[in-house]
Design a protein around this nucleic acid. Structure first.
Length: 347
DNA sequence: AATACGGGGTT
DNA sequence: AACCCAGTATT
């Protein structure tokens, strides 16, 4: 049920009062409302894309330590940026952040939504967030929290992006756009949660159509997700966990990160065949199998068989490079090889 | 409108 | 094992 226009001020006042009392204290929420440090806000928003706050917070602190200013970020090598991002996923975010930092270092921070939106890695959500939180501009954000909160308030089971944005635009408090955006997201994250929402604690429960329906958690309906595909590959560990042959991954999957030389198996291909191709390409000799690891990456499940070998290109220090979790799992097999197990075996 | 893109938390 | 997370870029 859409609140009538006369309810709107009351709804805004109720949520903002709750926010002023119960909003989260977060490390990027520094500076005056609507006038926050654009660098911190921008970095945090990119870091928090599809990443939970608890996790993003750890990376944020690490990132600010390594790159305290946009100039520091712009002048840093991309490898250092990826290393700071290691393990956080969606590495295009780090590559785009670095590219955008170069632009900002030249031209200064964008003054408005459109300028933010033009930067690589800044979409409608991030542009609205930074423009409102840092610039005081009246732009309504639309993220997973907003989608859920508004779907429930409006009693809409299948909210389209268009519907959500339209509702968010209507509700946005033009007097406090930054605080309003943070308030809706805080409500979604702490009260109006996906499962078991805490409706008794909700400052706007009286206006909630989903609660009135009796089953608020049923709003919005779950999104249909693509199936997880199976992928098989072989990898060659030439060296050890300290120094090994590493290659830079090209393309979109883990692009920019370093990793063990890897060969995907064609459908129905035997690992031995792919391994032979891989060893031939590197000019290396396979000495034995270290084991198999599996790794799930939302949309695909990778089964990677790892082999040890000799020869091939020069080894490089592993610790300095940014590796995916998959490669860390592969490297961990080295510690479990026969000799090591024997040496560490206790009586 | 779909799909690719990481990795992990919560239920 | 679902379902989700302060989304974006590319089809």
């Amino acid at each position: 049920m859409t609140p009538s226009p006369t309810d709107l001020p009351a709804l805004r006042a109720a949520l903002l009062a709750w926010f002023d009392r119960s909003g989260r204290a977060l490390p990027w929420r520094v500076g005056p409302e609507g006038g926050r440090d654009p660098y911190r806000v921008w970095v945090s928003e990119v870091l928090l894309q599809q990443t939970q706050v608890a996790r993003g917070r750890v990376y944020f602190e690490r990132f600010m330590e390594a790159f305290p200013t946009v100039e520091a970020l712009a002048s840093a090598p991309i490898d250092a940026v990826l290393k700071a991002w290691e393990g956080c996923g969606y590495y295009a975010r780090a590559r785009n952040l670095h590219r955008a930092a170069g632009i900002i270092a030249q031209e200064g921070f964008p003054a408005h939504y459109a300028g933010w939106r033009a930067l690589p890695g800044v979409g409608p959500y991030t542009a609205a967030a930074v423009a409102s939180l840092s610039g005081g501009e009246a732009r309504a954000v639309n993220d997973g929290n907003v989608r859920r909160v508004l779907a429930r308030l409006g009693g809409e089971r299948q909210p389209t992006e268009r519907w959500v944005q339209a509702r968010a635009d209507e509700l946005l408090d033009p007097a406090r756009p930054g605080a309003w955006n943070e308030a809706v997201m805080d409500l979604g994250a702490t009260v109006c949660t996906p499962k078991n929402p805490k409706c008794p604690e909700c400052p706007v429960s009286a206006s909630c159509a989903a609660l009135a329906s009796g089953d608020p958690a049923a709003f919005p309906a779950p999104k249909v997700r693509a199936e997880v595909r199976e992928v098989r590959a072989v990898a060659l560990l030439l060296g050890d966990t300290q120094a090994a042959v590493l290659e830079r991954r090209e393309g979109t999957l883990l692009g920019g990160l370093m990793g063990l030389p890897t060969q995907l198996l064609a459908p129905d291909e035997l690992p031995a065949a792919a391994l032979e191709r891989l060893a031939a390409r590197l000019g290396a000799r396979v000495t034995g199998e270290l084991g198999t690891v599996t790794h799930t990456m939302t949309h695909r499940r990778v089964t990677l068989s790892v082999y040890g070998g000799e020869g091939g290109p020069p080894r490089t220090p592993v610790a300095a490079e940014a590796l995916s979790r998959l490669d860390h799992k592969a490297l961990a097999l080295w510690e479990r090889r026969e000799g090591s197990l024997f040496a560490e075996r206790k009586s």
